[in-house]
Design a protein around this nucleic acid. Sequence first.
DNA 1: GGATCCGTTGTAGCT
DNA 2: AAGCTACAACGGATC
Length: 583
Amino acid sequence: MKKFSLTHPHHDMFATERKWLCDTMYISWIFSMATTIVWFRNCLRLHDNLSLLEASKSENVVCLFMFTPSVYNSNYMGINRFQFLLESLQDLQTQLRKKYNGDLILVKTNSSYRKAFETLLKSNASIKKIVYEYDSTPYAKKRDESIKNFVHKEFPDVKFLSFQGHTLTDLDKVVNQKGFKNPSNTKMMIKLMLNEYGKSSKSSGINIPAPLNAPLKLKFNSNLVHEIEKMDDSITVLKKVPELHELNDVFGDEFKDIDVEAIKKHSYFKGGETEALRRLREKVLDNADFVCNFEKPKTSCVPSSESMFREPSTTGLSPYLAAGCLSVRMFWDAVDKSYQTKKHVKVDNLTVSLYGQLLFREMFYILNEAIGEKFSQNTKSNPAITKYIDWNEQDPVLLQAWKDGKTGYPFIDALMRQMKATGWMHHLGRHAVSCFLTRGQMFQNWTYGRDVFDRLLIDSDYSLNTGNWLWLAGIAPYSMPYFRVYSPCPEETKKSALNFNKGGNEFIRYWVPELANFPTKYLTKPWECPVSAQKMYGVIIGKDYPKPIVERKNTNLEKFRVNLMENRLKTPHTSPPSKKQKL
DNA sequence: GGATCCGTTGTAGCT
DNA sequence: AAGCTACAACGGATC
């Protein structure tokens, strides 16, 4: 039996009016009281920011960034990425002030995010909603889930909402598509994207939703900052975005040994949305020739001339995508627009085009979402996902030499030193050094290299980093013939896939100054230079620059092949794969 | 259902 | 000089 209720519409002639009254009162109460916190982590931008748009519905907004020990732990975040983060925060704060007469509140705490939220929520009853961008790294997933559960339990009136804006697709939705299979190449990605968004007449052929504009208006709650200042000592408000050299005072010993001048001297990219949009215009919107002719494998890991040392042959937009200074939908849209200015230009190889690059990015995110933590684990327990290889026992001497750029292979060392100094390395350079560490010369576990990249690169992006390392180690759940090994001395190959000939020698001379005056003939293999000549050039190999720390000749291919055969999940084919026989 | 083709970016040696 | 071949694993798509 249903309960009979006076308020049931059929029995209550004033129900509509009453509901209207209640709604009005509720809305006016919300408008006068409720505060929404926009919790910035990634997504350091105003455009295409779903959390900010959600907050714009609220009368009182607080934009918040929290420095916790997990942010300023230099074990996880290299100094260049930290500098990039600070610049991005500075830009965000400036923009919020200019555009909305608002602010970005920066707080510092020595406790966890969860504890910080507890302090905030306990002391201010007007906080009704916390919004943030979804972060799919395993660490962030666990952290956000735990805070969410805590808030639900302890503060049931407060909504804790995430929005997906870091990727082209809603990752949850995609991996739950009917008939979803882990994508492993461009074709599967296009199919998946068409399934999600449908066709379009634009050059990409996929109807990716356009990026959203920044909210027109935001009303800020300026009281909260004063309240935070009165709270307990565990949480403090920073008066301004700190400079790198001030971090030692603010955070303790983490940054005591940094060389600020060196970082500023080498940095290629200034952080922030403003710079991201400027670069997008310069490299994509105003550069249709470059966009329409872009072929990733033809770009070079070395600069084309000395004057170009600071400018990559690609777009250089990856650091901005990683920190969310640039929305990936904004990037896609700009590529579309650029193609449109060239009528009748067809994308003849989508895979190597800029579209392709963004699809690979998406693919790695989707794989991470679908596979979970095992995506990045080097374990025998899940060989269906990554092929298992018994890498050589960890060799600290080899690993340290690789990390410090002291392997005795000038090309490899130049690339590693560039990454350490600038926080950036071209994609093909990353291929060269990761191949060298794993199946190429050192046969060391790829996870070591992955972690070094994660810390040092300013564009480090968990899913992309992991996906690319799996690829280069030759164990990815997608195509990568293991016998395609890059030469660490690429000048000797007639047609290097690394495009070394586009300035490789100058690149080595710049980053390995020990060899600045060494003869070009021996520049990538200095150990072959006769000792008498070494004396003449004033560089003794083994003293002024190391001898090669591992064999140049690749002896690992056979080991790799045997590993694959022994450790593969599925039973071998009953008959060997057919081969064309010579007559 | 079986054969065949394909996969963002290799290198060395030969003609 | 450009183009071929050997090296040769394997899952998924296509016919």
